[in-house]
């Protein structure tokens, strides 16, 4: 792949905190290498801003290798940018050309309030996990590895669901700001395994309940979440969540606040 440098115009959402109204700021960025990642380009811009005595842009990031789920930018309307099954930190500048204007916004959902600039508060996801995304395990010696036989296909499906990194791109991409894909991945990953059985009849109900309490929207099966998910979590998980939820309802065991 040919290496090239480019000059870009960035329109970035700036917001002092959750209480103030934000707005777009325009920044020119020069000599951006096509081999930089999107976040490295932001590092360059921020160093430039610091050297000019201006305030740098706040953005979330951690591992920068696509596995932690911290980076969260809506780039030209696309959560994590234009590449499919990709996180912002793994998006490279070769996706752009000289002279491009790029609009960068935070995840927008009332359940994800802006903390500063592009940083949003995603602790709503933690509270959903606390409501049911766990299993009860006895302490003591580790069990023999193959003591519990698990169907290969179920193990694979569970593993695929467990690859959700909880970044919130599904919420950001959903026109309804629904967290169904996230909740469905977390419910699926436990519901498919025998270890998830003890809480199974209450898990889906409690997690969906918490999702509603947090102020996420309702799923209308649009599918934008699946299209934007950096880990390729499938809508089949939402179908499974719906089955688990119906099962939860029919079982009649509504245990609130198990955590």
């Amino acid at each position: 792949m040919q290496h090239y440098n480019m000059n870009l115009t960035l329109k970035v959402w700036k917001q002092k905190n959750g209480k103030t109204k934000g707005g777009f700021e325009t920044y020119p960025v020069r000599n951006v290498s096509s081999e930089m990642s999107f976040l490295e380009m932001f590092d360059v811009l921020n160093e430039q801003l610091v050297s000019e005595g201006k305030e740098p842009i706040a953005f979330d990031h951690d591992c920068r290798e696509g596995i932690c789920g911290m980076c969260s930018m809506v780039i030209n309307g696309r959560a994590h940018g234009p590449w499919s099954q990709n996180t912002t930190c793994q998006l490279h500048m070769r996706a752009y050309e000289d002279g491009d204007t790029i609009t960068v916004e935070p995840w927008r959902a009332d359940a994800f309030p802006v903390i500063k600039d592009l940083v949003v508060d995603r602790t709503g996801f933690d509270r959903i996990i606390q409501a049911g995304g766990f299993i009860s395990v006895n302490t003591g010696n580790a069990q023999d590895a193959n003591a519990l036989p698990i169907d290969k296909q179920k193990a694979d499906e569970s593993f695929a669901a467990a690859s959700c990194i909880g970044c919130g791109a599904c919420v950001a991409a959903c026109p309804n700001a629904s967290a169904m894909l996230f909740v469905s991945a977390k419910v699926s990953h436990l519901a498919l395994l025998p270890q998830g059985e003890p809480e199974r009849m209450t898990r889906a109900f409690n997690m969906v309940n918490q999702m509603d309490t947090e102020g996420f929207g309702s799923c209308t099966n649009i599918g934008a979440c699946e299209a934007e998910c950096p880990k390729g979590i499938s809508l089949e998980n939402i179908a499974r969540l719906n089955r688990e939820y119906i099962g939860s309802m029919l079982s009649g065991s509504k245990v609130e606040g198990m955590a």
Partner: peptide
Amino acid sequence: KNRSRRTNRYAVNAGSATSP
């Protein structure tokens, strides 16, 4: 209800790139 879940809307929308 779903509309009210995103008070601040996006300046740029993905549109048909992610959903019909």
